[in-house]
Amino acid sequence: MIAGAVRQILVILVRVLVGARGEWVGSAPEPRTRIYFANHTSHFDTLAVLSALPRGLRRRTRPVAARDYWGGSALKRFVAEDALRAVLIDRDGSGGGDPLEPVEAALARGDSVLIFPEGTRGAGETVAPFRSGLHRLAERFPDAELIPVHLENLARVMPKGSFLIVPVTCTARFGAPLRQTPGETRAEFLERARSAVAELDPRREGTAT
């Protein structure tokens, strides 16, 4: 219950601070198992996507986060694991096991997951090449919908290397589910997924909405 309250407070804080509005352009908020994948530009990304989701979906959508950062202290672990129901993974495989195993367990239970396949935070200008984890999850869970998410303006809230917050309004834009294409190589799939996120950036078409 405390964890739920903390989650709600965090969501309200993020809403007040950066707006975090959800815009569904190619899909609708539906309670089905989904793999949301987004560009990664700031510390607020996870909270921004969760805040943009309707409340019912938020409870069943589990962000994937790095254990080396979020497992660092008891408080961080409480926020990540209890309040945000994050799935913590070992980015470098230091735990010895398979880093994606807990993510697959969450999907197998019917939860949705949110991942940032760039692996690290970018400058917000372009979307970096994706790591291969998304491909493996897509292959093992063909029934889970792959929803590209583009986070706009978050890099401007708190750019890498700064701790000052500029409260511009951020938008999480949810695109159309990625279709399965038989016979596609891993590299082709990852590039298609990457451009699905990049194409949701309104600046690419030269017109902001």
Partner: peptide, 17 residues
């Protein structure tokens, strides 16, 4: 906030903003 949501800025403007 609405002004800066639409107006472009560069990381060099961050402190001024």
């Amino acid at each position: 906030r609405e002004f800066w949501t639409l107006a472009p800025s560069r990381p060099g403007d961050h402190r001024a903003l």
